[in-house]
Amino acid sequence: MHSINVLQQHINHGLNNLNIPEHPENLYGSIRYMLQIGGKRVRPLLTLMAADLFSITDITKALPAALAVELFHNFSLMHDDIMDNAPLRRGQQTVHEKWNPNVAILSGDNLLIMAYRQLAKCPPEKLPQLLEAFNTMATEVCEGQQLDMDFENMASVGIDDYLRMIRLKTSVLLGTALKMGAILADATEVDVNLIYDFGVAVGIAFQLQDDILDVYGDPAQFGKQRGGDILANKKTYLLIKALETAGTDIRPELDRWLATDGPAEAKVNAVTVLYDRLGVRQAAELAKQRYIEQAYAALDAIGVHTTRKTPLRTLAQTLLNRTS
């Protein structure tokens, strides 16, 4: 098997050799900027790790699919940042802040086109299956983003609704990244579905950790504005659980802060105190743990030797215990 460092080198080499044009500068400069500010490259890594798990003969055959996943991910982030009015991404100015929203929209569109260009380089006999997986995922990500925005204007959102939304918006991309690698390595249908389930469960747990870090993480490590979800009244697991459990002693104060736009620091601090009183961080941690257990159960059921699955288990543990 290949080491994670070797797989990451393949990804970085592939991204560095995309031959992004120089002009128009605003269009392509913003794309280069988005790709250069990094991120963990987890999703393309999962594609290569899945291909490696099932003993693909040449790991570079899975590289175009991995790059397609990474380009799609950056496309979705660029557009999400506009919709969320986010000032920071990976600790740097978002594209719509550094340029403007119109540039970010066009650049995001082009990243999606670039993703399909990479998919077209995959083995022809695998393309129907890969496109079906990729297109299903892309549609679901859009559905999840729409639900996320809809939730902002809904008075009441249930925990099950929220979990369904994050499955669509965040988790299916991780599952599909793995699924595509498995398809390229000729895994059985059962194993393709199991590794997809593993990725989806990891993705939900990852998003729950993201919700927790938005409030309780260190902005210097997390790379995002602390309490951005609170300031946007975003229906995260923490807020939904708080609204469900707050009694008459806390609910009026929580409602009052939700109805105000600031001052920002005061709002974040006050809502965090209410979260602490309601124990919603602990509830989110418990929910995260349930999905971690589901993920490992799916991974354990995959029909390859346990030692071959160790890198995926280790990566999942690293992702789900992160502070940034």
Rank of each mutant, 00 (worst) to 15 (best):
residue 55 S to P: 00
residue 111 L to H: 08
residue 145 Q to F: 12
residue 262 G to C: 03
residue 225 Q to N: 09
residue 301 A to G: 01
residue 129 Q to F: 11
residue 108 G to F: 04
residue 209 Q to E: 15
residue 159 I to T: 14
residue 140 E to R: 13
residue 34 M to W: 04
residue 68 A to C: 05
residue 99 W to C: 00
residue 41 R to M: 14
residue 127 L to I: 12
residue 232 A to E: 14
residue 159 I to H: 06
residue 318 T to D: 12
residue 206 F to C: 03
residue 43 R to Q: 00
residue 178 L to T: 00
residue 305 H to Y: 13
residue 86 A to K: 04
residue 36 Q to K: 14
residue 195 I to N: 00
residue 228 G to N: 14
residue 246 A to W: 09
residue 68 A to Y: 09
residue 279 G to S: 10
residue 75 F to S: 06
residue 190 V to A: 13
residue 201 A to W: 01
residue 175 G to N: 10
residue 200 V to E: 15
residue 27 L to F: 00
residue 303 G to H: 14
residue 240 I to C: 02
residue 127 L to E: 01
residue 239 L to W: 09
residue 63 L to Y: 02
residue 25 E to D: 13
residue 306 T to E: 15
residue 240 I to H: 05
residue 197 D to R: 12
residue 274 L to N: 04
residue 102 N to H: 13
residue 82 I to V: 11
residue 141 V to N: 08
residue 96 H to G: 00
residue 133 A to N: 00
residue 171 S to V: 01
residue 305 H to P: 11
residue 267 K to Q: 12
residue 279 G to E: 12
residue 188 T to M: 02
residue 179 K to T: 08
residue 177 A to K: 05
residue 132 E to Y: 12
residue 43 R to I: 01
residue 126 K to N: 14
residue 254 L to E: 07
residue 49 M to S: 04
residue 70 E to I: 06
residue 226 R to I: 13
residue 173 L to M: 11
residue 214 D to C: 01
residue 40 K to A: 09
residue 212 I to N: 05
residue 148 D to R: 02
residue 39 G to A: 06
residue 92 Q to E: 14
residue 132 E to A: 13
residue 265 E to F: 00
residue 300 D to V: 08
residue 27 L to D: 02
residue 111 L to Y: 08
residue 165 M to D: 03
residue 4 I to R: 14
residue 94 T to G: 01
residue 114 M to P: 03
residue 272 T to Q: 15
residue 252 P to M: 07
residue 99 W to D: 02
residue 186 D to K: 10
residue 285 E to Y: 10
residue 141 V to C: 08
residue 140 E to G: 02
residue 214 D to Q: 00
residue 206 F to S: 04
residue 176 T to P: 09
residue 308 R to V: 10
residue 123 P to E: 05
residue 54 F to V: 08
residue 185 A to T: 06
residue 161 D to T: 11
residue 304 V to K: 07
residue 50 A to S: 15
residue 230 I to L: 00
residue 77 L to D: 02
residue 123 P to Q: 03
residue 294 Q to K: 14
residue 39 G to E: 07
residue 283 A to Y: 07
residue 278 L to C: 09
residue 105 I to K: 04
residue 150 D to W: 07
residue 34 M to V: 11
residue 69 V to N: 02
residue 187 A to R: 02
residue 42 V to T: 15
residue 45 L to M: 09
residue 203 G to R: 04
residue 193 N to L: 04
residue 318 T to F: 12
residue 209 Q to H: 15
residue 98 K to L: 15
residue 150 D to R: 09
residue 61 K to L: 15
residue 210 D to A: 03
residue 263 P to V: 14
residue 75 F to Q: 03
residue 24 P to W: 05
residue 145 Q to K: 11
residue 300 D to R: 11
residue 8 Q to R: 15
residue 151 F to Q: 04
residue 239 L to M: 14
residue 233 N to G: 06
residue 103 V to R: 06
residue 142 C to S: 13
residue 301 A to P: 01
residue 130 L to N: 09
residue 256 R to C: 10
